[in-house]
Simulated assay, not measured.
Amino acid sequence: MNLVAMAASLAIPSAWTIEAESPAAQVTFRHGTIDIDSPKGLTLWWRRPVAAPVTIAFEAMAVAKGGANDRVSDLNAFWMATQADGGSVLTHPRSGAFAAYDDLRTYYVGIGGNRNATTRFRRYVGEPGNRPLLPEHDLSAPADLLRPNVWTRIRLIADGRTVAVERDGRRLFTLADDQPYRRGHWGLRTTWSHLRIRRVTVTQR
């Protein structure tokens, strides 16, 4: 097992590309923690591409301490993301608005989306306006949503045909993909929220 990146090297500004819908969005890096405070859509791409089999892990907190964007919503991520033609997402900067990412080929998870009402997994197919959602990948039970001011551990897995999302040791989603996405970029995603991210690791085997 080759540990490609540890938290110390990931939690620095030069490791990331920011796409923010609002100039008021703030992303700060301090003491190994990434703080994302945004009134609109924002995607934070790790600059280094990854290849399967890979596991991306991090701890996240939805901050609710009275700030303007502390609404507890949208702990989201893309992984194995490419342009529809297979090119790098970093060669085509986007506005940060959610719809701007519809044309990617990628896996996506949204934990606590729609104002902390849904948790969903999608396999984007590179077609604008088309974000397929299977019924079993649309959750809304309280245990599947965000809790304010509590750290939660997320694992994003692309292991060849098996694609999965785990949270605090529990499997949220599993997809047996006959045509898996095997390489690309991964990024953290949110909208109108305040998140903190720490202990990020990317492990390739």
Rank of each mutant, 00 (worst) to 15 (best):
Y107V: 02
R153Y: 07
D138C: 05
Y124F: 13
A99G: 14
G87Q: 04
R47I: 07
V63Q: 00
T91D: 15
K40N: 14
W16G: 03
R48F: 07
R71E: 11
L3G: 07
A62D: 03
I111L: 15
S88T: 13
A25F: 00
R120Y: 00
R182T: 06
P23Q: 01
T118D: 15
A62F: 03
N2P: 11
E21N: 10
P135C: 09
Q204Y: 10
V89R: 08
H137F: 13
D178S: 04
L175P: 02
K65A: 13
S22W: 09
T190A: 03
R122Q: 14
T82A: 02
P93N: 06
Y181H: 05
L133D: 03
V163E: 01
R47Q: 13
Y107S: 03
F173Q: 07
V125N: 07
F173T: 08
R147V: 15
I36H: 10
S140W: 04
A100C: 09
T119M: 08
P180I: 05
Y124C: 00
T203P: 00
G169N: 12
V4E: 12
W186F: 10
L195N: 09
Y181Q: 09
G169W: 09
Q179A: 13
F78Y: 07
L195Y: 04
R47T: 15
W46R: 04
D103G: 04
R189Y: 09
G169T: 09
P132G: 01
A164R: 11
V89E: 10
L42R: 01
V4Q: 12
M6E: 14
D74S: 15
T55F: 01
V150P: 02
T152I: 15
E166T: 07
R189V: 06
M80D: 00
R183E: 08
L44P: 04
A143I: 11
P132V: 09
L195V: 01
R170S: 14
S22M: 03
H31A: 15
P142W: 00
N130Y: 12
T162H: 09
M1H: 10
V27C: 05
H137P: 05
W79I: 01
A84F: 06
W46H: 15
E19T: 06
L134Q: 14
